[in-house]
Each structure stands twice: as C-alpha cells, then as structure tokens.
Design a protein around this nucleic acid. Structure first.
Length: 221
DNA sequence: GCGACAG
DNA sequence: ATCTTGTCGC
C-alpha cells in the first residue's frame, strides 16, 4: 500500500511532544470503518544487533476466518530510544516500511501498544492510524496510564480504563483466568467496536491472532 | 518532590 | 523488547 506524507521524525522528546500535541487533534474515536470487514492486520517489531536494528512485521489475515493472506518484513536502523509515552517514534518508521510492501489494504490494524490510553492521548495505535488513515486499535499487554476496577475471570468480561476522570479504554479478559489486555481506540473506531473486533480476532489464546502472527514474524530467526 | 512507566 | 530450561496446570 502507498503511504502518503509523514511528518519529520523528532530527535528529542520536546519535538516529539509537539508532534503528539498536534496529531492528537486529528484522532477520530467514532466508528468510521469500511464494511464489511474483510481483512484485519497485526503489526509488530523485533530487534536485532543489540537493538541497533529494527525488524517490522505486518500480517494481514482474512476476517472473520483469520487465515494468513499476506505478510511483510522490513529492516531499518533503530533511531529513537524506548521512552514510556514515546513508543511510536521508535516503532512507526519501520512499520511504515513494512506496510508499504503490503498489497492488501487492511480494514483494521491491531497495534501492539496503547491507543488513546496514553498521557497525551496519542499512543502508537493513534499515531499510526492518523498517518495512514486506516482504522486502528490499541492492544497492549500491560498498563501505561489509568486505573480500573477488578474484573471477573471469564473471557469477554471487561472494565473501563479511567484516566483523569475520562474513559480512555477497557481492560479486557480475552481468555478465562489469564491476564487481561488493555484496549483503546486508535483511529476511526469506537471503544465498544474495538472490544468487539479484538474478541473476534482472539478465538483461542490471550493475544489476537493478528498480533500472534506478526509477533512471530518479527521475532523469529 | 515521589512513584509509575506501552515495547 | 531481549537474555533463557524446565516446569506447573488445564
């Protein structure tokens, strides 16, 4: 797929904050999906050479049957350190490289990390979604910001994730008796719809099939 | 000022 | 994220 213009990449946290404050105004948290949903994708990053090199992976699966349709890999030198709150600046450049190689434009992309459940409401899912104008969902394995009530052990149960009196996402049990995932709107999708698609992409394990396939591609040798 | 802190 | 074997439990 073709990636249109992306902003200049920052070299300092101050510049990164400016970009986040600008892009946050472009995020859409209501449903604006292409229906029917025919393809869902997962994106992830792996590192080589002591973290100096990034390897991005994209996995496009059919929906709702979740079969692999297309995958891609892209390598590029890692250019930004990992700083909580600034993950997207480290991961998105390589992810864009990998997405450019994909022919099947996905209807939804599930990202490893937060969406609006972020200190400045621009987690990696929002950032990527705004840059490529495709609906995205933030699917994080751990908490960045916010608080929530305890949630039942049953698969499918969830609780709102609250930050500064605002519902920024959901803590979702994707498998009975297993640690929950942190779901939030990335771009062009609402929280209820995001939860629905995450569950429909997670038939068996804790993580969505999209992320599992992308994870494997990004970290396999 | 003191903790918390996606991957 | 990554370094790493076996092991407990459904």
């Amino acid at each position: 797929m073709k990636i249109y213009q992306s902003h200049a990449w920052p070299s300092t946290v101050e510049e990164a904050i400016t970009i986040q404050e600008t892009l946050r105004n472009l995020v859409i948290t209501t449903d604006q999906l292409n229906t029917p949903i025919q393809h869902v994708a997962g994106v992830d990053l792996g590192f080589l050479e002591d973290g100096k090199m990034s390897r991005a992976a994209v996995a496009v699966l059919s929906f709702p049957d979740l079969q692999i349709v297309e995958t891609s890999l892209a390598y590029r030198p890692t250019s930004f350190p990992y700083i909580p709150g600034f993950l997207s600046f480290r991961e998105i450049p390589a992810i864009l490289d990998a997405l450019e190689k994909i022919k099947t434009i996905p209807d939804i992309i599930l990202c490893d990390g937060q969406g609006i459940a972020h200190p400045r409401r621009l987690g990696i899912a929002c950032h990527l979604g705004v840059l490529i104008n495709i609906p995205t969902i933030g699917v994080a394995k751990s908490l960045l910001i916010g608080k929530h009530e305890e949630l039942p052990e049953a698969k499918g149960s969830w609780q709102p994730l609250i930050h500064k009196k605002e519902t920024v996402g959901a803590v979702l049990r994707t498998r009975t008796g297993v640690k929950p995932l942190y779901i939030s709107s990335g771009h062009r999708i609402s929280l209820p719809t995001a939860i629905d698609y995450v569950l429909r992409c997670t038939p068996k394990y804790r993580l969505p099939e999209t992320t599992r396939v992308a994870d494997k591609l990004a970290s396999d040798r």
